[in-house]
């Protein structure tokens, strides 16, 4: 099995998709603490998809409830296109109902975080996803 570096440094470019500026700042701060150097931010799914069409991104962290294009539609779009289908996606949302989580799972979300999240849970999920991506 090919083993790559599984640290955050291996994730060069992270895209945070979130309509709340405060949550974007929190997630960005954690990513920077973990060593991410290139962080892109989008306030909705449509803007995020515009970024993804133009730039290659290593990790997407997205909210669910957003204007224009919601997080779930963004994940569907990401998975539908060959050039983006491989990008790991972490969903951070307030939706904690079973059917919502199952839907995210069906849409190929890689990890799911319920708001309000902690530094520990966010860090763990990011590291898990990076590790899994590195081991692939």
């Amino acid at each position: 099995m090919k083993c790559r570096n599984t640290s955050i440094e291996s994730i060069m470019k992270c895209l945070i998709v979130e309509d709340s500026i405060i949550v974007r700042r929190i997630v960005g701060s954690v990513l920077r603490k973990l060593g991410a150097t290139h962080i892109l931010e989008a306030g909705d799914g449509k803007t995020a998809w515009n970024y993804l069409e133009q730039e290659s991104v290593d990790l997407v962290i997205t909210d669910w409830n957003m204007p224009e294009m919601n997080g779930l539609d963004l994940v569907r779009t990401i998975r539908k296109h060959k050039q983006t289908a491989h990008i790991p996606v972490i969903m951070i949302t307030i939706r904690d109902r079973q059917d919502d989580v199952l839907k995210a799972y069906e849409y190929q979300v890689n990890s799911y975080i319920v708001k309000p999240f902690t530094l520990k849970s966010l860090r763990e999920k990011i590291e898990q996803v990076i590790k899994a991506t590195g081991e692939k």
Binding site: S111, Q128, T133
Partner: peptide
């Protein structure tokens, strides 16, 4: 069961963590 434990959620997503995971649950 309509409610789960965090650990349970983590376990499910652990299986989904690979970006190449199949598209249906």
């Amino acid at each position: 069961n309509p409610t789960f434990l965090q650990e349970e959620i983590d376990q499910l997503f652990r299986g989904n963590i690979s970006p190449d995971a199949p598209s249906t649950p």
